Amino acid sequence: MERITLVGFGLLASSVASAIKQANLPVKIRAVSSPSTLERARQMNLADEFFGYDQTAEWVKDTDVILLCSPILHILKTLDDLSKLPSEILQACSKKILVSDIGSTKVEICKAGTKLPAPFVFVGSHPMAGSEKRTLEYNDPSIFENAYWFVCPPDGTKEEDYKPLLQLIDFVGAHSVVFPPEHHDRTMAWVSHMPQMLSSTLAANIPERLLNYNYQHYAGRAFRDMTRIAASGWNMWHDIAVTNRGETVRALREVREGLDETIAAMDRLQVVNEGKPAENDCSENLEKVFKAGNDGRASLFAPGRNAASSFSEVTVPLKDQPGALLAVLKPLAEAGLNVRDIELMKVRENVAGTLLLAFKTPEEARRAIQILAVLDYDVKDR
């Protein structure tokens, strides 16, 4: 690959560009975006060539790979524009051009992609990476590290035709998963799109009996965690909703059936009467729900099946005092250890929190444990 064209130069496109620049690869980066974004990309030295969205005939020339990184409906429009390019422009291309995308739904995009004429070869894709931040200002060359990156080639496509995409995925540290587009959208409906709708619905339906007294401020971590993604922007989710409506609705209905079963199990409970518990509180059905939930949650982290599980994690209890985080992270940094992920698992006033640290290898985790143990931290391998 000598030249990659990134259409829609937001967070993920600029992160790909940043990774290439950081590694000093001999690859020309062509940015296609709005004038203001292009100017900022130029200032940040994230690209070598700059084009507007409407300059399609220009940014197609001499490129090896086109990666469409704009919102889903814009990806569909760009695919339509590519399919309508004049024949003389297409005939002037001396080699195949691999076209892919990073859209969060795949069926509609792959349908449109398969209509592209030669010399284009289309393979849909979707990296399971991102952030609530959307612009190139927040580019992160390690954002794809250890993430799944779905690849959806049309039937009959040879792996050789999309090898540059697989090489790119491997280069940024992601794990490629070849998946039919229908399977992708069915899976994402359950593990991504339906949870977003549930989170938004939950946050949108805080009852007036709480809001009138500002009682929602007493929400604990459970409610805050469950509604975190309710802060997601509507523009992106509009495109996801309209291109994966059927599967997402099916997932929501399946969850609604589960909620009905849980409500029925709650209704069967025998409540405490006059301070005396019932001899049989009829909680068996609710217990089944909890145990099935335990199993479902555990299945997410089955060894060898979850990309993130390849991280080696340790937990460190913290003191509730200024500088507590720095006291843990500074000696690790001085030892040259790279913390790949970090989470403060419990935060309560005057109660010690637990810091979760993730490392790339077990050896790095062991070194971290040794360093922190010398400093009298009760570090545990998770």
Score class of each variant (00 low, 15 high):
132 E>N: 06
133 K>M: 15
133 K>L: 15
135 T>R: 13
136 L>E: 04
136 L>T: 02
142 S>P: 00
148 Y>L: 13
150 F>A: 15
150 F>I: 14
150 F>R: 00
153 P>M: 02
157 T>W: 02
159 E>I: 12
160 E>L: 03
161 D>N: 05
161 D>K: 08
162 Y>R: 04
165 L>H: 05
166 L>M: 12
166 L>C: 08
168 L>K: 01
169 I>N: 07
171 F>A: 06
172 V>N: 00
172 V>K: 02
173 G>F: 03
177 V>P: 00
178 V>M: 12
182 E>D: 10
184 H>F: 05
185 D>H: 06
185 D>T: 06
185 D>C: 08
185 D>L: 04
186 R>G: 00
192 S>W: 08
193 H>P: 07
197 M>I: 13
198 L>D: 03
198 L>A: 15
198 L>K: 02
200 S>V: 11
200 S>G: 13
200 S>P: 00
202 L>D: 04
203 A>C: 11
204 A>G: 12
208 E>G: 03
209 R>K: 15
210 L>Y: 13
210 L>K: 02
211 L>T: 13
213 Y>T: 11
213 Y>F: 15
213 Y>L: 15
215 Y>E: 00
215 Y>A: 09
216 Q>P: 01
221 R>A: 14
222 A>P: 01
223 F>N: 00
225 D>Q: 11
225 D>Y: 03
228 R>F: 11
229 I>M: 14
230 A>F: 10
232 S>F: 03
233 G>L: 03
234 W>K: 10
234 W>E: 05
235 N>V: 10
236 M>Q: 12
236 M>F: 13
236 M>D: 06
237 W>E: 01
238 H>C: 01
238 H>A: 00
239 D>Q: 09
240 I>Q: 04
241 A>W: 07
244 N>L: 01
247 E>S: 08
251 A>I: 03
